[in-house]
Write a protein that binds this DNA or RNA. Structure first.
Lengths: 182, 182
DNA sequence: TGTTTCATGTAAGACGTTACATGATTGG
DNA sequence: CCAATCATGTAACGTCTTACATGAAACA
């Protein structure tokens, strides 16, 4: 249950309402830990009940501003310093790859090329995002944001390379006698 | 709901019981799509009810052997050929990175170094796995298995490189006046 | 005979997604 | 006044994890 820690983390620098936090999720945290409206409001209530957050102000439309409590800060620290969990990865794409030989050679190639282009597109989007940010201003993205962004760039680059490599391998094994390449 | 398709995919080549499929999950599919006993048995019943699988034999201890039906094969094809889903990634580790500045410089470095070593360890394990497999024998791992294995190798390599890069960045920004490096 | 392996099933609870529902306030 | 935005909440459903529960068959 890391949504809870995402909320705690976001509330270190600021005080915010559920609505504010949702926007923060959609902008800064979207690629790392997406969350829906339902989830955020529910978890905020639970966190406040547990004493990790507290309501420090009421606004116009029933708006509630939350702030981190000492207990909450302690919990955040504990989570950050704790042994990082070996997360079991689950990849829809790799699962398909695993059963790729059910498809025809043409379909296999199409699949891998599609993956390569998807990764390339994602990579380009991240690159554009990075270049569009003000690094002089103190926006919401600190040095940590840069680290995760760089991870995304490296990941998508690797994915594209892998897909192109796999496509070439599949293509050459489908017609082993014709070993033409550029 | 891709567990269903994992089961269908595994039943293309063989006929198997839930117990067999569990073992297959733990060996060949563990890194791609882990599944628990509860899940497998439940899903098998649902798949049989839906007509995608059928029981083709009973064994000793209430053992039921399942086989793919034509409908099941069709569904597998449909899934494989379908537009691959843009899966939203959720990374516990990256979430922590995002809030890394809550920690002390020493703790940050420790975290990143730990990540680098974890990735390196995983990489080594995968490499050993690859080298230990008989490629001459027709084990359970076909060409597709090789593709996913290679993905894992590239991923873990990239993760280690990233973590080392990040560690260096963090270290140098903590003591900007002392720009010593090898 | 007793332990290991084979074999299946159910139940409770956490987490996530989608959809539904409601209403106040701001701005044009 | 009307639309967009702000703001919160609930309900239903599906998936995954953990734990509990049961028993037959193989083997030593």
């Amino acid at each position: 249950m890391s949504l809870r820690h995402a909320l705690l983390g976001l509330l270190v620098d600021r005080t915010a309402s559920g609505y504010d936090l949702l926007k923060l999720f959609d902008t800064s945290l979207a690629h790392v830990w997406p969350a829906t409206q339902s989830q955020v409001y529910g978890e905020l209530t639970r966190l406040a009940d547990a004493g990790l957050l507290e309501v420090v102000g009421q606004g116009p439309r029933g708006r509630k501003d939350y702030a981190l409590t000492d207990t909450g800060m302690t919990e955040l620290h504990r989570w950050l310093a704790d042994p990082p969990p070996e997360q079991p990865r689950r990849s829809d794409t790799l699962l398909r790859v695993f059963f790729l030989d059910v498809l025809t050679p043409q379909q296999r190639l199409a699949f891998l090329n599609h993956q390569a282009e998807r990764a390339a597109g994602h990579h380009a989007a991240l690159r554009q995002l990075r270049d569009s940010l003000d690094w002089t201003e103190e926006g919401m993205l600190t040095a940590n944001g840069l680290l995760t962004l760089e991870y995304g760039l490296r990941l998508t680059a690797m994915q594209e390379e892998w897909a192109r490599w796999a496509a070439q391998l599949v293509a050459s094994s489908d017609s082993p006698s014709q070993a033409r390449q550029s």
